[in-house]
C-alpha cells in the first residue's frame, strides 16, 4: 500500500478511522492498565487475608477481610521493627534523593554554563558513570568502606546514594536549554554572586528537571537492594525492601511470616505512590519542556 492511498482513505473516512484508532488505543491501554494493576490488586487482596486463607482462597477476591488486624500484627511484630525499616527507607531515599538532586543540579549547571578546560572530558567521565551498573560497584564499595570502617553504618548506604550520573546528564542538557545566558549576564551586572544566581535564578528555571532527577533517584534508592544487602548487618539500619526480603527467605521456617511480608509490601509501596502523585505535575512539564525544544 502506498502512502498516497493511505492518505486518500484517511481523508475520506477520517472520523471513522479516528474513532477506530481511538478505540484501539483505548483497548491497548486498558489491557496494559489491567496488566500493571492486577499484581497490585492481588497484593491488596492478599494483604487482607489470614495466613491460612492466602494459600487456600481465591487469590483475586476477598476472604474474611482483616486488613486492620494484619496491619496491627505487622506494626507490632518484633517491637515494630517494620516501622523502623520504613523510616530508614524514607530517610535513605528522601534525604539521599534531595542531596543527590542538588549535587547533580550543581554539576549539570556548571557543565552547561561555564567554559573551562576539561569540561567535555569531565562530562564524558560522568556519562561513563551512567553505563556502570550500581550492582557492579557494590562489592568494591564494600571493600572501600571496610577500609575506613564505615560498613554497617547509615553512611554506608547514604553516601553512595547521593551520586547520580544520570542526573548530571539530564540537568546539563536541561540547563543548557532553559537557563538563558542573557539572564545570567543580567544577574552578574546587578552584582549577584555566582552561588546566589544559581540558587535564586537558575535553580528555579531548572526545577522541572530537578523534580525528574529527584523522582528517579528516590525510586532508585528505595529499590536499591544489593547495596544494603552487602553493607548492612544491623537490623536497625535495614531499609524496608531488604528487611522484607529477609523475612521472605525465612518462610519455610516460619510460615506465619507470609502474611507480614505481603502486608509489609503493600504498606511499603504507599510512600512511592504518594511521592509520584504529588510530584507528577512537575514531572510532566519537565519531560514536555525537553520535547518541544
Amino acid at each position: 500500500m502506498t502512502t498516497t492511498a493511505v492518505r486518500t482513505r484517511g481523508t475520506a473516512r477520517g472520523p471513522r478511522d479516528s474513532l477506530m484508532s481511538r478505540t484501539t488505543a483505548m483497548i491497548i491501554m486498558s489491557v496494559f492498565t489491567v496488566y500493571f494493576l492486577l499484581p497490585i490488586w492481588w497484593l491488596f487482596v492478599a494483604s487482607t487475608k489470614s495466613t491460612g486463607d492466602i494459600l487456600t482462597s481465591d487469590p483475586l477476591w476477598f476472604a474474611d477481610p482483616q486488613l486492620l488486624s494484619n496491619l496491627g500484627d505487622l506494626f507490632a511484630y518484633r517491637d515494630g521493627v517494620y516501622l523502623r525499616w520504613l523510616g530508614n527507607s524514607v530517610l535513605y531515599a528522601g534525604l539521599g534523593g534531595l542531596v543527590a538532586t542538588l549535587l547533580a543540579g550543581m554539576c549539570g549547571y556548571a557543565l552547561a554554563k561555564y567554559h573551562f578546560r576539561g569540561r567535555e572530558f569531565m562530562f564524558s567521565v560522568v556519562l561513563g558513570g551512567v553505563l556502570v551498573p550500581a550492582t557492579a560497584l557494590a562489592l568494591p564499595l564494600f571493600l572501600l568502606f571496610s577500609q575506613v570502617e564505615l560498613t554497617n553504618t547509615f553512611w554506608a548506604v547514604f553516601l553512595p546514594s547521593i551520586v547520580s550520573p544520570f542526573g548530571v546528564y539530564l540537568t546539563r542538557i536541561f540547563a543548557a536549554g532553559s537557563v538563558p545566558d542573557e539572564l545570567l549576564e543580567a544577574a552578574r551586572l546587578d552584582g549577584s554572586g555566582e552561588l546566589r544566581t544559581f540558587f535564586t535564578v537558575s535553580l528555579r528555571l531548572m526545577s522541572p528537571a530537578l523534580v525528574t532527577v529527584f523522582l528517579f533517584q528516590f525510586v532508585t534508592i528505595w529499590n536499591n537492594f544489593f547495596l544494603p544487602l552487602i553493607m548492612l548487618r544491623d537490623e536497625a539500619l535495614f531499609p524496608v525492601t531488604f528487611g522484607l526480603y529477609g523475612w521472605n527467605t525465612q518462610l519455610n521456617q516460619i510460615p506465619e511470616l507470609r502474611m507480614l511480608v505481603l502486608v509489609g509490601a503493600l504498606v511499603s509501596i504507599i510512600p512511592l505512590v504518594v511521592t509520584f502523585l504529588s510530584l507528577q505535575r512537575f514531572w510532566r512539564s519537565g519531560l514536555g519542556a525537553g520535547a518541544v525544544k
Binding site: 557543565l111 554554563k113 573551562f116 569540561r119 567521565v125 560522568v126 553512595p160
Partner: peptide
C-alpha cells in the same frame, strides 16, 4: 564552576577507585 563540578564528581571518583 570548577568547585561545583568537582563537588558533584567527587563521590563518583570515589566509586571508580573502588
Amino acid at each position: 564552576a570548577a568547585v561545583v563540578a568537582l563537588l558533584s564528581s567527587f563521590a563518583l571518583a570515589a566509586c571508580s577507585s573502588g
